[in-house]
């Protein structure tokens, strides 16, 4: 089973196979927790978000549809929604910085395996592409995607018109896409 592709594993998970689900969990828990923690900034909340996301996949048998993207993308989309729910349940976006908790030092994936090395390289690539964006475009994208803020909240925070915020979101995504598409494929 360990050699099955993600899509094949998902088929078994959706049939209620607990061993397939465990393998599915092992493959995607790191990126899931990483995203949850990046968004909520608190280890306990990030653990809850991750746990809820995986259990919702197991229990509600959320249907993965291959034509909509990879399993990884699908899982991270579920985590993203759960993290936004968690952020919005707190009336104030109260996030501690990761360095204050020291969590990154304790849980950072060391480059023990090819998979972890590839994750790190990919993270560097995407972060570099984000940082190459004009600052205001990068900012609105980060506030929206990682902060869970609506366009009107972002407009208030940055003291700019809503239309400007929306425009910068779109332009930023366009530039990001172009930048990533021009990156050479990993070896």
């Amino acid at each position: 089973m360990a050699n099955l592709a993600d899509e094949e594993i998902m088929h078994l998970v959706q049939e209620g196979d607990p061993r397939a689900f465990e393998l599915f969990y092992d493959r995607h828990s790191g990126p899931a927790f990483s995203l949850a923690y990046r968004m909520v900034g608190n280890r306990t909340v990030a653990e809850d978000v991750s746990q809820e996301a995986f259990l919702s996949i197991w229990r509600s048998k959320l249907r993965y549809q291959p034509d909509r993207g990879s399993v990884r993308t699908w899982v991270l989309g579920i985590v993203h929604h759960r993290a936004i729910d968690a952020l919005r349940r707190n009336t104030v976006h109260d996030k501690r910085r990761a360095s204050a908790e020291g969590i990154e030092e304790r849980f950072e994936a060391r480059e023990r395996t090819d998979v972890e090395a590839a994750r790190r390289d990919e993270a560097l690539t995407v972060r570099a592409a984000l940082e190459d964006l004009p600052a205001e475009q990068c900012r609105v994208i980060e506030l929206a995607y990682f902060g869970g803020f609506s366009h009107s909240q972002i407009a208030d925070q940055l003291e700019m018109p809503i239309g400007t915020v929306k425009g910068r979101m779109r332009l930023g995504l366009d530039k990001l896409r172009t930048s990533l598409m021009s990156e050479p494929e990993p070896a």
Binding site: P18, F21, E22, Y25, D26, S29, G30, P31, A32, F33, S34, L35, Y37, R38, R43, E47, S50, Q51, F54, L55, W58, G69, T73, L76, V79, H80, A98, I103, E104, F107, E108, A109, E116, R119, R120, E122, A123, V126, R127, A129, L130, I141, Y145, F146, L173, D174, L176, R177, L180, M181
Partner: peptide, 28 residues
């Protein structure tokens, strides 16, 4: 959409605490 799909891959890769797996697999 691919630009949005790339965003979660920009975060620092972390290892999920083992307590999450224990809790999830216990429920499973």
């Amino acid at each position: 959409q691919p630009a949005v799909d790339a965003l979660p891959r920009s975060v620092t890769p972390l290892v999920a605490p083992s307590a999450i797996k224990a809790a999830v697999m216990g429920e499973v």
